[in-house]
Design a protein around this nucleic acid. Structure first.
Lengths: 181, 181
DNA sequence: TTCAAAACGGAACATTGTGTTCTGTATGTT
DNA sequence: AACATACAGAACACAATGTTCCGTTTTGAA
């Protein structure tokens, strides 16, 4: 409720994402964030325990926005219908696109693992409903991991080839991943 | 030529891989390596500039062994023949299996990026010959990245599910990647 | 066998980044 | 206005890195 809390929290977020546009997560120090956000050292550590903690909070925000908001009201979707599957994927890509300017700064090193952990967790939940009818001689877990990593790596590739639209990327992914779709 | 050089170098390597079996790369300090290898601090830094430098040297060793040794004499292979492609993949998996006990310690964080960088570089070179005949409406670069990441992530998955044989993993990969094979 | 070059060991050091603690000030809520 | 708390700033302890200096041991060649 205290405006000060939200104000400094936002200042930290802005400084963090701003720095991520120019530099990789691992090269950013807490001091950089503090300086750019123009706050005291104590203040930062009263909001976040560590730099990783800040990153996790940012990831939570991103994926709450990307997944729950859209996919929550998509209960009507019929995942056995290829068109709906495609539209869900494109929707996710659209929302990720909003964060694309600072995503490359996260997608490497330990921070990449943290981000991908959140991403895969959400994707696993989403994709697991797609393959319950599969009866291949390949472990279900392998297939699920395969699809999730495939999509996640597609996004990583996209972050390095930003000329493409969400629709393009969705199509690339959809066409190259034949299994269970 | 100096036996001391090779002796301490081997001691460092052994200590490093031994520590990687129990702990992630990022948690291992130079001091740990020094202690286990039973060498002086100065000695370590006369061999390797940094901890990352040591990792890169290890990666070079691994992939020189995995790729060049086997794939060098496989010039006879006809990559348009599916059977040969499969055998090449299985061969790579066989050799990677020799390092599987300490691979999980590498495959996370910054060290994972470094390892994957070497791995993907080799895979890209290998796979690029597979898809020159493709005329899809998807960027060639995307497809190549797709296949490389697919295989790399398969190995990563394998490192967490060690109950499977190289043949199993080769089959999983081969069956789930339809494109260009 | 001798001897110079080198590799090694050990201790100390500067540096960087982290996370904590303290004290005093400023701000928001009631 | 008054109380609570969020903030600023400086100082601190701690951990890990990479360097420097100096003395000792080993190696390979003369």
């Amino acid at each position: 409720m205290d405006r000060r809390l939200q104000k400094t929290r936002k200042a930290i977020y802005n400084a963090f994402t701003e720095l991520l546009k120019k530099e990789n997560y691992s090269r950013i120090t807490v001091q950089h964030i503090i300086d750019l956000a123009d706050i005291g050292r104590t203040t930062f550590y009263s909001h976040f325990e560590t730099k990783d903690d800040l990153l996790k909070a940012l990831c939570t925000d991103i994926f709450d926005h990307v997944f729950s908001k859209d996919l929550g009201k998509e209960k009507t979707h019929d995942f056995s219908c290829a068109k709906d599957t495609y539209s869900v994927i494109t929707h996710i890509l659209y929302h990720l696109n909003e964060h694309m300017d600072y995503l490359p700064g996260i997608l490497s090193g330990e921070s990449g693992d943290i981000f991908m952990g959140f991403f895969k967790e959400n994707l696993t939940y989403l994709f697991s409903s797609f393959i319950d009818n599969a009866e291949l001689d390949i472990p279900r877990d392998y297939i699920l991991n395969h699809m999730v990593c495939d999509f996640a790596e597609t996004v990583r590739w996209w972050s390095k080839n930003k000329t493409y639209s969400p629709e393009d990327i969705g199509r690339f992914f959809y066409k190259s991943t034949n299994i269970c779709f």
